[in-house]
Design a protein around this nucleic acid. Sequence first.
DNA 1: AGCTGATAAATGTCTGACAAATAAAATTCG
DNA 2: CGAATTTTATTTGTCAGACATTTATCAGCT
Lengths: 242, 242
Amino acid sequence: MSDNSKNPKQTTKRPNLSAEIADAIRDAIITGQLIVDERLPSESELSAQFNVSRPTVREALKRLAAQSLIRTQRGASGGAFVNRLSYEQAYDQQVTTATLLLSMNGVGFETACDARFALERACAPLAARNRTQHHLDRMRSELEKQRNAALSDEAFCTSDVAFHRAFVDSACNQVLSYQLAGAIEAMQPLMNMITYTRRSREKIVDLHDRILTALDQGDMAECDAALEALHSYTVDLGKSGR
Amino acid sequence: MSDNSKNPKQTTKRPNLSAEIADAIRDAIITGQLIVDERLPSESELSAQFNVSRPTVREALKRLAAQSLIRTQRGASGGAFVNRLSYEQAYDQQVTTATLLLSMNGVGFETACDARFALERACAPLAARNRTQHHLDRMRSELEKQRNAALSDEAFCTSDVAFHRAFVDSACNQVLSYQLAGAIEAMQPLMNMITYTRRSREKIVDLHDRILTALDQGDMAECDAALEALHSYTVDLGKSGR
DNA sequence: AGCTGATAAATGTCTGACAAATAAAATTCG
DNA sequence: CGAATTTTATTTGTCAGACATTTATCAGCT
């Protein structure tokens, strides 16, 4: 790792040192050569190792920081540390990425909707088995909000998302919750924008109630059926708008 | 946007200009103030606008580049452009993030497995409806590979992943394919490491065959049953190893 | 008109410096 | 001797200016 800069274009004529360095460090983290909370060499040491200037190293480190792979700390015994990727940070990235994918690639409403409900229905069996009173309470609380006719459209939507998030969380599977963060949160604006003028809150609240009741009783078939009904209703709303 | 540097600590004592600038630009992209393929101001102009130096601006831009939000181009009429986030780029990030989440947070084998198969089973209805001959051929081709007893463990696993990827893709829903990239690819090493010594290839191939046959016939119930069987078998393998 | 070379604009990189934060060591005082 | 305080060293954050490299554009020549 000392003289890798002697030969000018060793691999594939890369005019992008900071990206190269970032990739090298990223690989070291992914393969486990650098473990969580381990401190990277200081910027000066890294610039010496890679034979580049400090600004270049810094650009590489910022790339990694943007992915939450490292965190930095100033001062003596400060530096860059391998970051334990938290679910919260991963959620945010997931939501950002999913939002952009939807808005930038002209994904059709029905496609997004199909994906969203397919994923959510995947949670039903686990949710029926693992849900706790805490989850049921969260969902019931949101449902009460939604019954209030004075609620603004925006607040109704937020509560809608919270309801479905609680449902997903009730599967008690962090991986699933993470994976669905994008599907649920990113599609809120999309679905909201398309359906909020025509939807019947009453019907949605009824379906939410069916879901909650089914979950309470551990009836995963009924739960799935209610989700499917919500799916159909939403898709129909989308179609009628075109 | 001109004198935002006059008051030293306007919001929350942030000693991190490059992060602040990156967030500002990111927001502009997400909210649609900057649209795809639009060119950002040059680094010099940005440093003037934000009243910071060019290296600081560059660090901000590298953060965005790391998330594939922008791309840069050298030369006259070059610069930073808002990037159309492609599914391919999103796949990579998804897989990287999911891999790290699993390895860094001590996710149990069963939890990961439950999530993985729940998500994959979510594809079954859509797959049964939308699969094309192309997808079936891809899966059949992988299945043939897997029947070859001379195949190395590693190659068998790669083919296994390719088989499931083809299955997911057969739902013909890009959003779903994107969401499942992490679930399928990131868990390969995990599942492989745990089960490869004890699993029966024959049994797995049989189950793959059931899945493929069911998909061919559009029998989504049978397809789901086969996936559930594969799920149970995998979980059992994990349990017996503990 | 078509090709060629100069020009300008932009990113990529380097050097060197200073500011700010922070922990550890050194010092001072009770 | 022990505790509080000051100093010091280390490291990241920021700045300024410079040069290298790439690339589109345009002037000029054949």
